[in-house]
Protein backbone atom coordinates (compact mmCIF):
# COMPACT_ATOMS: atom_id res chain seq x y z
CA UNK A 1 0.00 0.00 0.00
CA UNK A 2 1.37 3.34 -1.05
CA UNK A 3 -0.54 6.26 0.42
CA UNK A 4 -0.53 9.84 -0.77
CA UNK A 5 1.55 10.83 2.25
CA UNK A 6 4.06 8.10 1.49
CA UNK A 7 4.55 9.39 -2.04
CA UNK A 8 5.72 12.65 -0.46
CA UNK A 9 8.44 10.74 1.36
CA UNK A 10 10.16 9.45 -1.78
CA UNK A 11 13.91 10.13 -1.68
CA UNK A 12 13.58 11.95 -5.00
CA UNK A 13 10.51 14.05 -4.43
CA UNK A 14 7.91 15.58 -6.68
CA UNK A 15 7.91 19.35 -7.02
CA UNK A 16 10.88 19.39 -9.38
CA UNK A 17 10.62 21.34 -12.60
CA UNK A 18 11.34 18.54 -15.07
CA UNK A 19 9.29 18.54 -18.26
CA UNK A 20 5.95 16.78 -18.28
CA UNK A 21 6.64 13.16 -19.21
CA UNK A 22 10.38 13.34 -18.46
CA UNK A 23 11.80 9.81 -18.55
CA UNK A 24 14.94 10.88 -16.69
CA UNK A 25 12.96 11.85 -13.59
CA UNK A 26 11.17 8.49 -13.88
CA UNK A 27 14.52 6.66 -13.92
CA UNK A 28 15.88 8.66 -10.99
CA UNK A 29 12.79 7.86 -8.95
CA UNK A 30 13.11 4.13 -9.74
CA UNK A 31 16.83 4.08 -8.93
CA UNK A 32 16.41 5.89 -5.61
CA UNK A 33 13.68 3.43 -4.56
CA UNK A 34 16.34 0.72 -4.67
CA UNK A 35 19.36 2.61 -3.34
CA UNK A 36 17.57 3.92 -0.27
CA UNK A 37 18.45 6.67 2.16
CA UNK A 38 22.02 5.60 2.87
CA UNK A 39 23.16 7.06 -0.42
CA UNK A 40 25.24 10.11 -1.29
CA UNK A 41 24.76 11.35 -4.84
CA UNK A 42 26.61 13.62 -7.22
CA UNK A 43 25.11 15.13 -10.36
CA UNK A 44 26.91 16.67 -13.29
CA UNK A 45 25.59 19.90 -14.69
CA UNK A 46 22.57 19.12 -16.82
CA UNK A 47 18.81 18.75 -16.83
CA UNK A 48 18.62 16.68 -13.64
CA UNK A 49 20.70 19.16 -11.67
CA UNK A 50 18.76 22.13 -12.95
CA UNK A 51 15.27 20.75 -12.53
CA UNK A 52 15.84 19.09 -9.15
CA UNK A 53 17.76 21.75 -7.22
CA UNK A 54 16.57 25.23 -7.95
CA UNK A 55 17.64 26.99 -4.76
CA UNK A 56 16.12 27.01 -2.16
CA UNK A 57 14.24 23.99 -3.45
CA UNK A 58 15.61 20.48 -3.75
CA UNK A 59 13.99 17.22 -4.76
CA UNK A 60 16.67 15.24 -2.96
CA UNK A 61 16.17 13.77 0.45
CA UNK A 62 19.61 12.21 0.39
CA UNK A 63 22.87 14.16 0.58
CA UNK A 64 23.51 15.42 -2.93
CA UNK A 65 26.12 17.58 -4.59
CA UNK A 66 26.52 19.23 -7.96
CA UNK A 67 29.92 20.63 -8.82
CA UNK A 68 30.59 20.96 -12.55
CA UNK A 69 29.78 19.42 -15.91
CA UNK A 70 32.74 17.09 -16.32
CA UNK A 71 33.65 16.02 -12.82
CA UNK A 72 30.74 14.01 -11.40
CA UNK A 73 32.87 10.85 -11.26
CA UNK A 74 35.85 12.64 -9.69
CA UNK A 75 33.71 14.30 -7.03
CA UNK A 76 32.19 10.88 -6.29
CA UNK A 77 35.72 9.45 -6.00
CA UNK A 78 36.49 12.06 -3.35
CA UNK A 79 33.29 11.28 -1.48
CA UNK A 80 34.12 7.59 -1.48
CA UNK A 81 37.62 8.34 -0.15
CA UNK A 82 36.18 10.54 2.60
CA UNK A 83 33.69 7.83 3.59
CA UNK A 84 36.56 5.35 3.87
CA UNK A 85 38.38 7.73 6.20
CA UNK A 86 35.22 8.21 8.24
CA UNK A 87 34.68 4.45 8.43
CA UNK A 88 31.25 4.77 6.80
CA UNK A 89 31.91 3.26 3.38
CA UNK A 90 30.39 -0.12 4.20
CA UNK A 91 27.00 1.42 4.96
CA UNK A 92 26.72 4.07 2.26
CA UNK A 93 26.29 3.83 -1.51
CA UNK A 94 27.95 6.53 -3.60
CA UNK A 95 25.90 7.38 -6.69
CA UNK A 96 27.46 9.47 -9.45
CA UNK A 97 25.13 10.80 -12.14
CA UNK A 98 25.43 12.60 -15.46
CA UNK A 99 23.73 12.86 -18.81
CA UNK A 100 25.17 11.44 -22.01
CA UNK A 101 27.22 14.57 -22.73
CA UNK A 102 28.52 14.70 -19.17
CA UNK A 103 29.44 11.03 -19.46
CA UNK A 104 30.61 10.20 -22.96
CA UNK A 105 31.97 13.60 -24.01
CA UNK A 106 33.21 16.13 -21.49
CA UNK A 107 33.16 13.80 -18.48
CA UNK A 108 34.82 10.79 -20.11
CA UNK A 109 38.25 11.52 -18.66
CA UNK A 110 37.16 11.79 -15.06
CA UNK A 111 34.89 8.76 -15.51
CA UNK A 112 37.74 6.71 -16.93
CA UNK A 113 39.89 7.73 -13.97
CA UNK A 114 37.21 6.68 -11.51
CA UNK A 115 36.81 3.32 -13.31
CA UNK A 116 40.54 2.69 -13.48
CA UNK A 117 40.99 3.43 -9.77
CA UNK A 118 37.97 1.19 -9.17
CA UNK A 119 36.25 3.42 -6.63
CA UNK A 120 33.24 1.87 -4.95
CA UNK A 121 30.84 4.10 -6.90
CA UNK A 122 27.73 3.42 -8.97
CA UNK A 123 27.88 5.70 -12.00
CA UNK A 124 24.62 6.27 -13.84
CA UNK A 125 24.50 7.81 -17.31
CA UNK A 126 21.02 9.06 -18.20
CA UNK A 127 21.19 8.83 -21.96
CA UNK A 128 18.76 11.03 -23.85
CA UNK A 129 21.06 11.30 -26.82
CA UNK A 130 21.90 15.02 -26.89
CA UNK A 131 22.61 18.10 -24.80
CA UNK A 132 18.99 18.63 -23.89
CA UNK A 133 19.56 21.10 -21.07
CA UNK A 134 21.19 23.64 -23.38
CA UNK A 135 18.62 23.19 -26.14
CA UNK A 136 19.13 19.87 -27.95
CA UNK A 137 22.67 20.03 -29.33
CA UNK A 138 24.38 16.84 -30.55
CA UNK A 139 26.54 14.74 -28.26
CA UNK A 140 28.69 11.66 -28.79
CA UNK A 141 25.61 9.58 -27.94
CA UNK A 142 23.28 11.21 -30.46
CA UNK A 143 22.05 8.48 -32.81
CA UNK A 144 22.60 8.47 -36.56
CA UNK A 145 20.45 10.91 -38.54
CA UNK A 146 18.85 12.53 -35.52
CA UNK A 147 18.04 16.20 -35.90
CA UNK A 148 19.60 18.29 -33.19
CA UNK A 149 20.16 22.05 -33.15
CA UNK A 150 23.85 21.53 -34.00
CA UNK A 151 23.28 18.61 -36.36
CA UNK A 152 20.24 19.88 -38.18
CA UNK A 153 18.86 18.20 -41.25
CA UNK A 154 18.97 20.36 -44.35
CA UNK A 155 19.17 20.26 -48.11
CA UNK A 156 22.45 18.39 -47.96
CA UNK A 157 22.21 16.77 -44.52
CA UNK A 158 20.19 14.07 -42.81
CA UNK A 159 21.10 15.36 -39.38
CA UNK A 160 23.68 13.74 -37.13
CA UNK A 161 26.16 12.02 -39.44
CA UNK A 162 27.68 9.60 -36.94
CA UNK A 163 26.25 6.64 -35.06
CA UNK A 164 26.16 6.56 -31.26
CA UNK A 165 29.46 6.04 -29.46
CA UNK A 166 29.25 2.66 -27.76
CA UNK A 167 29.77 3.84 -24.23
CA UNK A 168 28.97 0.61 -22.32
CA UNK A 169 31.80 -1.17 -24.13
CA UNK A 170 34.15 1.64 -23.17
CA UNK A 171 33.12 1.03 -19.57
CA UNK A 172 33.64 -2.72 -19.93
CA UNK A 173 37.08 -2.14 -21.45
CA UNK A 174 38.10 -0.80 -18.02
CA UNK A 175 37.38 -4.27 -16.58
CA UNK A 176 35.16 -2.82 -13.88
CA UNK A 177 33.13 -5.36 -11.90
CA UNK A 178 29.74 -4.46 -13.35
CA UNK A 179 28.33 -2.73 -16.43
CA UNK A 180 24.64 -2.61 -17.27
CA UNK A 181 22.37 -1.05 -19.85
CA UNK A 182 18.75 -0.45 -18.87
CA UNK A 183 15.76 1.56 -20.02
CA UNK A 184 13.08 3.72 -18.46
CA UNK A 185 10.69 1.55 -20.48
CA UNK A 186 11.52 -1.53 -18.39
CA UNK A 187 11.39 -0.47 -14.73
CA UNK A 188 11.68 -3.95 -13.19
CA UNK A 189 14.73 -4.73 -15.31
CA UNK A 190 16.22 -1.36 -14.36
CA UNK A 191 15.62 -1.90 -10.66
CA UNK A 192 17.00 -5.43 -10.82
CA UNK A 193 20.23 -4.06 -12.30
CA UNK A 194 20.44 -1.30 -9.70
CA UNK A 195 19.97 -3.88 -6.96
CA UNK A 196 22.75 -5.99 -8.39
CA UNK A 197 25.05 -2.97 -8.80
CA UNK A 198 24.39 -1.96 -5.20
CA UNK A 199 25.54 -5.38 -4.00
CA UNK A 200 28.87 -5.24 -5.85
CA UNK A 201 31.97 -3.50 -4.50
CA UNK A 202 33.99 -1.39 -6.90
CA UNK A 203 33.13 0.75 -9.90
CA UNK A 204 29.81 0.10 -11.62
CA UNK A 205 28.47 1.64 -14.82
CA UNK A 206 24.76 1.83 -15.57
CA UNK A 207 23.47 3.49 -18.73
CA UNK A 208 19.75 4.17 -18.90
CA UNK A 209 17.87 5.12 -22.04
CA UNK A 210 15.63 8.04 -21.12
CA UNK A 211 13.52 9.50 -23.94
CA UNK A 212 13.30 13.29 -23.92
CA UNK A 213 9.99 14.93 -24.83
CA UNK A 214 11.23 18.29 -26.18
CA UNK A 215 14.53 16.96 -27.57
CA UNK A 216 13.06 14.01 -29.45
CA UNK A 217 9.89 15.93 -30.23
CA UNK A 218 7.01 13.65 -29.35
CA UNK A 219 3.91 13.76 -27.19
CA UNK A 220 4.73 13.35 -23.47
CA UNK A 221 2.57 10.24 -23.17
CA UNK A 222 4.91 8.28 -25.47
CA UNK A 223 8.00 8.35 -23.19
CA UNK A 224 7.59 4.73 -22.11
CA UNK A 225 6.43 3.53 -25.49
CA UNK A 226 9.50 4.99 -27.20
CA UNK A 227 11.86 3.57 -24.59
CA UNK A 228 10.31 0.15 -25.19
CA UNK A 229 10.42 0.51 -28.98
CA UNK A 230 14.13 1.39 -28.77
CA UNK A 231 14.65 -1.98 -27.15
CA UNK A 232 12.24 -3.96 -29.32
CA UNK A 233 13.79 -2.64 -32.56
CA UNK A 234 17.29 -3.61 -31.41
CA UNK A 235 18.49 -0.01 -31.38
CA UNK A 236 19.03 -0.02 -27.62
CA UNK A 237 20.20 -3.47 -26.50
CA UNK A 238 19.74 -4.07 -22.78
CA UNK A 239 22.30 -6.30 -21.11
CA UNK A 240 24.59 -6.54 -18.15
CA UNK A 241 28.18 -7.63 -17.81
CA UNK A 242 30.62 -8.63 -15.12
CA UNK A 243 34.06 -7.37 -16.05
CA UNK A 244 34.42 -8.00 -19.80
CA UNK A 245 31.85 -10.78 -19.93
CA UNK A 246 28.20 -10.21 -20.81
CA UNK A 247 26.09 -12.23 -18.36
CA UNK A 248 22.59 -11.54 -19.62
CA UNK A 249 20.73 -9.82 -22.44
CA UNK A 250 17.11 -8.77 -22.58
CA UNK A 251 15.65 -10.72 -25.47
CA UNK A 252 13.40 -8.99 -27.96
CA UNK A 253 9.94 -10.53 -27.68
CA UNK A 254 8.81 -9.39 -31.12
CA UNK A 255 11.18 -7.65 -33.49
CA UNK A 256 9.86 -4.25 -34.56
CA UNK A 257 11.11 -2.40 -37.68
CA UNK A 258 13.02 0.77 -36.77
CA UNK A 259 10.53 2.81 -38.76
CA UNK A 260 7.93 2.27 -36.03
CA UNK A 261 10.30 3.87 -33.55
CA UNK A 262 11.51 6.68 -35.79
CA UNK A 263 8.14 7.85 -37.05
CA UNK A 264 6.89 8.85 -33.62
CA UNK A 265 9.73 11.34 -33.19
CA UNK A 266 10.07 14.79 -34.70
CA UNK A 267 13.85 14.49 -34.67
CA UNK A 268 13.61 11.86 -37.43
CA UNK A 269 10.72 13.27 -39.46
CA UNK A 270 13.05 14.48 -42.26
CA UNK A 271 13.76 10.81 -43.04
CA UNK A 272 10.17 10.25 -44.14
CA UNK A 273 10.14 12.84 -46.92
CA UNK A 274 11.69 11.05 -49.83
CA UNK A 275 13.61 8.03 -51.10
CA UNK A 276 16.95 9.38 -49.92
CA UNK A 277 15.48 9.50 -46.44
CA UNK A 278 14.22 5.95 -46.79
CA UNK A 279 17.75 4.89 -47.64
CA UNK A 280 18.89 6.45 -44.37
CA UNK A 281 16.21 4.49 -42.51
CA UNK A 282 17.76 1.38 -44.04
CA UNK A 283 21.09 2.35 -42.54
CA UNK A 284 19.45 2.69 -39.13
CA UNK A 285 17.78 -0.68 -39.61
CA UNK A 286 21.20 -2.12 -40.32
CA UNK A 287 22.50 -0.76 -36.98
CA UNK A 288 19.56 -2.45 -35.23
CA UNK A 289 20.12 -5.73 -37.09
CA UNK A 290 23.81 -5.69 -36.21
CA UNK A 291 22.95 -5.15 -32.55
CA UNK A 292 20.51 -8.06 -32.66
CA UNK A 293 23.21 -10.25 -34.15
CA UNK A 294 26.04 -9.09 -31.91
CA UNK A 295 24.15 -9.34 -28.62
CA UNK A 296 21.98 -12.32 -29.58
CA UNK A 297 18.80 -10.38 -28.87
CA UNK A 298 16.49 -12.84 -30.60
Amino acid sequence: MLTKEETHNELFTMGHTGCSGCAQSMAVKLIMEILGKNTIATSATGCLEVFSTRWPESSWKIPWIHSLFENSAAVASGIEAALKVLGKKEDITVLSQAGDGGTADIGLQSLSGMFERNHDVLYVCYDNGAYMNTGYQRSGLTPLDAFTTTSPSGKVSFGNNRPKKYMPEIAMAHRIPYTAVASAGYPMDLQKKVKKAKSIKGAKYLQVDVPCVPGWKYEPKYSVKLAQLAVQTGLYPLFDAEYEKIISVKKISKKVPVEEYLKLQGRFKHLFKDDAGRAEIEKIQKIADENIERFGLI
Partner: peptide
Protein backbone atom coordinates in the same frame (compact mmCIF):
# COMPACT_ATOMS: atom_id res chain seq x y z
CA UNK B 1 46.98 8.16 7.74
CA UNK B 2 45.24 9.50 4.65
CA UNK B 3 43.61 8.39 1.44
CA UNK B 4 46.08 9.32 -1.27
CA UNK B 5 44.40 9.40 -4.66
CA UNK B 6 46.56 9.63 -7.74
CA UNK B 7 44.10 10.99 -10.27
CA UNK B 8 44.14 11.28 -14.06
CA UNK B 9 44.27 15.10 -14.26
CA UNK B 10 44.46 18.27 -12.22
CA UNK B 11 40.79 18.86 -12.93
CA UNK B 12 40.02 15.64 -11.12
CA UNK B 13 42.63 16.32 -8.42
CA UNK B 14 40.67 19.40 -7.44
CA UNK B 15 37.33 17.63 -7.92
CA UNK B 16 38.33 14.75 -5.66
CA UNK B 17 39.25 17.09 -2.80
CA UNK B 18 36.07 19.06 -3.47
CA UNK B 19 33.96 15.93 -2.99
CA UNK B 20 35.92 14.78 0.05
CA UNK B 21 35.89 18.22 1.63
CA UNK B 22 32.12 18.40 1.20
CA UNK B 23 31.96 15.28 3.40
CA UNK B 24 33.63 17.25 6.17
CA UNK B 25 37.14 15.82 6.07
CA UNK B 26 40.42 17.74 5.76
CA UNK B 27 41.82 17.77 2.23
Amino acid sequence: KAEFIMVESEHSAASVVLGASACGVRT
